[in-house]
Design a protein around this nucleic acid. Structure first.
Lengths: 151, 151
DNA sequence: CTTCATGCAAAACATTTGCAGCTGG
DNA sequence: CCAGCTGCAAATGTTTTGCATGAAG
């Protein structure tokens, strides 16, 4: 269901670094640490989680810097921001293109399901509404098998 | 593309009132004002907008009460909450069931497009992942015809 | 009458900003 | 070197909470 972890992660990291260099952004150790965390993230970490992970590797990093870096990467299209109604924001640096998510409403875990027929929707909408579609967001909410069993 | 405004709005208001009575929640003037605004809302107002609209009719209402009422209605399933990555929350009291939205990234207007093949997706996901799907969220982002012309 | 709801102000959060000092290229 | 980045702390903005008062049922 997902690409091979380590290889994909290394590739993502390279891609992010290139993008920064391309646009003459500096590669500071703090930034690099954030990039590595995001590129390697299998889950969908919050800023606070990224901050903790970065600190383990580079202890003087500040929360503000993590925010600034994440925002920068988002603007460069190298990270996908997922905001939820409860105000929590999560980030996906592993797959920065929009893709569906499925969120367990009990354990709050987020997964990336495969789903074929979505690109189709963009076209249908464009045609019916006359809008130029830039991107979309599709989330499913429900109980994962483990949490369902636990009830 | 949408139900007839006034009739549908009145019907939604009745439905909300019934739901509150059913569960023995009190019908205060402040609540009623919020219900009316939400039931009649063609757009997708923010809490601040609801607050303003309610104040026009019932000037002593506090922001906290609007929040509490909106949260109550959300829990009763009578209002749909739409959170966005920028932290803004919007509410749809006119159609409380999940439905797709299309958001213009220039003028920020939100519309409700018709789209046939969504229920189908719930099933496909349930089958592929083993989750019990409770609800979903589908948003499209793009330029509306007016904003595109303006470029 | 007896809750439950309201309104106020303070608290709680998450995120952003201003700025002095540091540092990558 | 010096523009851009960092870290700190303060500011911001939104939503939540505690509690005394008021009113719905």
């Amino acid at each position: 269901m997902k690409q091979h972890g380590a290889a994909h992660s290394a590739q993502r990291l390279e891609q992010m670094i290139s993008k920064l260099r391309e646009q003459s952004f500096r590669l500071t150790p703090q930034r690099l640490a954030v990039l590595e965390i995001l590129a390697a993230s299998e889950g969908h970490p919050t800023v606070a989680e990224i901050y903790e992970a970065v600190r383990a590797r580079f202890p003087t990093t500040s929360l503000a810097t993590v925010y600034k870096t994440v925002i920068l990467l988002k603007e460069l299209g190298e990270v996908l921001e997922l905001g939820f109604p409860d105000g929590s924001n999560r980030y996906d640096g592993s797959r920065p293109q929009p893709h569906p998510h499925i969120i367990c409403t009990a354990c709050r875990r987020i997964m990336d399901p495969e789903l074929s027929s979505i690109e189709h929707l963009n076209e249908e909408i464009a045609q019916k509404t006359g809008y130029t579609i830039q991107h979309h967001r599709l989330d499913f909410f429900g109980l994962c098998p483990a949490c369902r069993a636990r009830r």
